[in-house]
Write a protein that binds this DNA or RNA. Structure first.
Lengths: 208, 208
DNA sequence: CTTTGCATTAACAATTATGTTAAACAATTG
DNA sequence: CAATTGTTTAACATAATTGTTAATGCAAAG
């Protein structure tokens, strides 16, 4: 068996594991079911990844990376005027969550149910965020000074953006059957929801 | 043993079960650990509730009821002027979630991981909501006509309110370590967050 | 006081998941 | 082609968890 094939098997296990863990969580996931979905015996899964725990770590690591990278990238281009920069941030963040709809719920559940493990990670991300914020808040203050927008707290604004964008996807399966025609067409609803979130945030920062 | 005592035991099991299921979810919960927390042997738990499944049902049922009652009640007093009615709705909903911080995550996870079971429930709630909405949208339109507020979609507004209020609590354990001083004092942060959510929603409906 | 019925316990049964191992197999290398 | 290394399988071991049961206790009712 050549390298190519081996990597394929590893990859297939990882993909099946991602699907299983993201939809069912650590406790609900079954290694046998992951192995089956990947088309390997469950002994092979253990051969490649030793334990369920270690396989899970791999998924968590990757997902955390994707999540934090994209979340930070959402606070894009500092060369844009502040108001446009925020609009752009909301759009980018919405689109990211839209491409990874299962991710936020997974990460939140993970952290809620095993807070002890993420101390290091938190410290690291915390430092990065702190840095970004200081700059962002300064830019907001400057723009407010120039009368371009309302003076707002950068962190609060950030939380609002995350709330509006993420909740849409977290609660989708819950809301969909409750909302009738509004949600009949997924694509249409998401488009409308995106516009609504942008509008809500833009009004929040609009000078009045 | 008198009636009082028996009901107490049942009650203690239910309370322990609620705690366990809400924090760990169905898969993560252990009946032995529930029994231990309730101070009974695990055979007693089975004696009272037969299976884990049935015990879980009891908790889900009650929690669903609490959740839907409070969510609807948040769209309070139709005698108030529309703008005040919305403000009041946001405040009531925030306070409700604040008193039941684990509830939204529990319900969302439940529904995501077992969608098939909630068809009936959904139909019922859907009908109620539909009803409330029709009235609410009419009231909003009328208020907009009178120039008291912006014309907005009632369902979209509702989703925004839920998003802002619920996400705060769902993501709290995740954000807390990331936000530094802002969240050092829980009570203070929640107060600030509540004010921020009210402001965000009020600006959304403000005539401009 | 005895009978009846519920409450309680401890021991046990069954199932399910994770993880291991030894042997078979395949591929690569010298 | 022999030796070595890594891969695969099937069978097994272990542990955890849910659920059952038969025996015992206990309280109230007749």
């Amino acid at each position: 068996m050549d390298n190519q094939e081996r990597q394929n098997k590893e990859q297939e296990i990882l993909e099946a594991a991602e699907q299983e863990f993201l939809t069912k969580g650590y406790d609900g996931a079954r290694t046998t079911s992951i192995a089956k979905a990947a088309g390997v015996t469950h002994a092979m899964l253990h051969y490649y990844f030793r334990t369920k725990e270690q396989l899970f770590e791999r998924i968590v690591d990757e997902k955390f990376r994707v999540m934090s990278r994209s979340t930070l990238a959402a606070f894009g281009d500092p060369s844009l005027p502040m108001v446009e920069r925020v609009r752009c941030g909301v759009i980018n963040h919405f689109d990211f969550v839209s491409r990874n709809p299962l991710l936020p719920r997974f990460i939140i559940n993970e952290i809620v149910s095993r807070p002890e493990r993420y101390g290091v990670l938190h410290a690291r991300i915390g430092a990065i965020i702190d840095n970004v914020y200081r700059g962002l808040q300064a830019d907001i203050d400057a723009a407010a000074e120039r009368g371009e927008m309302e003076r707002v707290d950068a962190k609060m604004l950030f939380i609002s953006i995350m709330s509006l964008n993420i909740f849409t996807f977290i609660a989708y399966p819950f809301m969909k059957p409750l909302m009738g025609e509004l949600m009949a067409d997924d694509a249409k609803f998401l488009e409308a929801r995106k516009a609504e979130n942008i509008e809500t945030i833009m009004r929040r920062i609009k000078k009045q």
